[in-house]
């Protein structure tokens, strides 16, 4: 079903990372950075939108980070990381020229290659825009193959809007609609204030022929999926990206088990008809 087959490392130890050099670091938000990495071995890196890598910081540890760059670029990879723990903070403290270990890409991608002809609705919350960005790039690169394209993005405050310049550029395009809302208005914000589900209620997609890609905190994804469902979108056309503890990303460590799934292999992207029954069980 996918254009690019995942890199399966049979016969080679999947626990051993490849070395990548940090080429560029961009500060996105007060605690969030985007890093461009290039492989030391010079070999191409291929991935599909929605996949993630395990990034290793020397002596500190490893952390799963979704890929936030363009899947058409194979000379390097971009990751956007928020400092939420020891490893992500150490990662964000690295400088250009430093080396990180990379294992991946892992996981089931957004189904962008399978939904030609449909409207595409991106629903992002907070830094959840980062894992969606490769899918947005994909859709825009194949713009003629899709119907209406809409991005509904909810952030905490105007200062927390990720990829602000790019979001502005997307807003300026005539072939897509971009709605941004914040939980709390600050400063000179003249945009929307409220939750992302309110944006969904505004519609802008053909409910019978649309796919939604949803990424953000789990509770936000549930509300968003419910709002999309209320607008008439079938659950199998709604896709969410799950987050669970991961130590190995290849189904060896058991940490990300979720019902009958390993989120690392069977996800992180799940259609909502599969995710909803599991999300409804407390602490599953």
């Amino acid at each position: 079903m996918n254009v690019l087959a995942p890199n399966r490392t049979v016969g080679q130890d999947p626990m051993v990372p490849r070395s990548f050099v940090i080429e560029r670091v961009r500060k996105e938000l007060s605690d969030t950075y985007t890093m461009d990495l290039v492989p030391r071995d010079g070999l191409p890196f291929r991935f599909e939108p929605g996949q993630f890598n395990m990034l290793y910081v020397f002596g500190v540890g490893e952390v799963p980070i979704s890929i936030s760059g363009d899947s058409k670029v194979t000379a390097g990879i971009s990751h956007t990381t928020r400092s939420v723990g020891k490893v992500s903070a150490a990662l964000n403290a690295l400088q250009p020229g430093d080396v990180v270990g990379v294992r991946g890409p892992y996981g089931a991608p957004w189904p962008v290659a399978d939904v030609h002809g449909m409207d595409v609705v991106f629903v992002a919350g907070g830094v959840g825009l980062a894992p969606l960005r490769p899918a947005i790039y994909w859709v825009l690169a194949h713009r003629a193959e899709f119907g209406n394209v809409a991005i509904f993005y909810g952030a905490r405050t105007p200062e927390d809007i990720l990829f602000r310049r790019e979001v502005q550029q997307w807003r300026g395009r005539f072939d897509m609609t971009v709605h941004v809302t914040v939980d709390r208005a600050t400063g000179a914000w003249s945009g929307k204030v409220g939750v992302v589900t309110q944006l969904i209620k505004g519609g802008g997609f053909d409910r019978h022929n649309a796919v939604a890609l949803v990424c953000g905190p789990e509770v936000m994804m549930r509300y968003a999926a419910e709002a999309l469902g209320e607008r008439g979108m079938p659950k199998q056309n709604i896709h969410v990206s799950m987050e669970r503890n991961m130590k190995c990303a290849v189904g060896f460590c058991g940490h990300c088990q979720w019902g009958a799934n390993f989120v690392c292999k069977d996800g992180p992207v799940f259609s909502y008809d599969r995710a909803e029954p599991l999300l409804s069980i407390w602490e599953l």
Binding site: Q12, D13, P14, M15, G251
Partner: peptide
């Protein structure tokens, strides 16, 4: 099955 036959192989 877990370490050899599930898509990835634990080399050791």
């Amino acid at each position: 099955k877990v370490f050899i036959d599930s898509g990835f192989t634990d080399a050791g």
